[in-house]
């Protein structure tokens, strides 16, 4: 419990900043929504979008161009990019979590106290889960406020569901980050490693979406299993809309494996520094 408190205190400021920045970006994009409802603007937008190559549209998550004059279509399109940023934050948080103690050499102090490696890992995991949920609360709050402003609060229930479901890919990258952290001897390269893995998998995901022959590669990119706009369509019961169930199962498996790998590796780890 004492380590959990310390972790929360140490990382709270960073989480609040991430929450504010992501909320600001969401508000900034949704501020364009009123102009989207203008018929002339919509027409211009769609005509321009239709001129773009199909592959490019697919890579931008516009395989089916949303109706931007509907708040939730606009919201879910913007939100998928926030999920990417949020996943990066979660992965960095996970990757730095255990390795930063070794990088700063404070781990020697912790190891000399009456606390097991397992308890250290659990405390750090719980702290980072709470910090991720804090960022999520910022996003939920901003989403609800913007819905109240632009759509009279008619979609709050769906917004809450989307925010809940989209935590799944966030925790996938968090778990991958933690597993990596348990192998690192220092946090000096943790951000580079986290970003390389994230964008590596994201690019593979884009390739899988744009080149049909390589569509199985999508499973190397958890962020692309179920994008926000697809989740929204399923939630409103749009015809033909389905969730990638295999993606959901694989996400759950990655989280379980990531957590298990962290415990197994960290419990047997020599402190070499």
């Amino acid at each position: 419990m004492n380590l959990l408190k310390l972790e929360l205190k140490k990382n709270l400021k960073g989480s609040i900043i991430w929450g504010i920045v992501l909320s600001g970006v969401l508000l900034l994009y949704l501020a364009f929504f009123p102009s989207m409802t203008d018929a002339g603007f919509s027409e211009l937008l769609y005509s321009k979008l239709n001129m773009l190559p199909k592959g490019l549209l697919e890579s931008l998550g516009l395989a089916e161009v949303p109706d931007f004059s509907i708040f939730m279509e606009c919201y879910s399109y913007v939100f998928q990019f926030l999920v990417i940023a949020f996943a990066i934050y979660a992965m960095i948080l996970g990757t730095k979590s255990l390795s930063s103690e070794e990088g700063n050499k404070t781990i020697e102090f912790l190891y000399s106290k009456q606390i097991t490696r397992m308890q250290i890992a659990i405390s750090k995991m719980l702290a980072s889960i709470l910090l991720i949920l804090l960022v999520s609360i910022f996003l939920i709050f901003t989403s609800i406020i913007s819905n109240l402003i632009f759509s009279n609060g008619s979609d709050i229930e769906i917004i809450l569901k989307i925010n809940k479901i989209m935590l799944l890919p966030i925790f996938v990258y968090w778990a991958i980050g933690f597993a990596i952290s348990s192998f690192l001897k220092s946090d000096s390269k943790s951000i580079v490693i986290a970003l390389s893995i994230f964008f590596g998998s994201y690019i593979i995901g884009i390739i899988a979406v744009t080149i049909k022959k390589l569509d199985m590669l999508i499973y190397l990119s958890p962020i692309n299993y179920n994008v926000t706009s697809d989740v929204f369509k399923v939630l409103v019961g749009r015809k033909g809309a389905t969730l990638n169930i295999a993606g959901l199962i694989i996400s759950a498996i990655i989280i379980i494996l990531g957590v298990a790998a962290t415990y197994i590796k960290y419990n047997k780890k020599d402190l070499l520094n």
């Binding site: 140490k10 700063n104 050499k105 102090f109 009456q114 606390i115 097991t116």
Partner: peptide, 21 residues
Amino acid sequence: DSSSIKKDIGYVPSEVNYYEH
């Protein structure tokens, strides 16, 4: 039994690294 042992151990390391903030 490392955790139980550490209840009654004090350790002064040669290098001193603590939470700087």
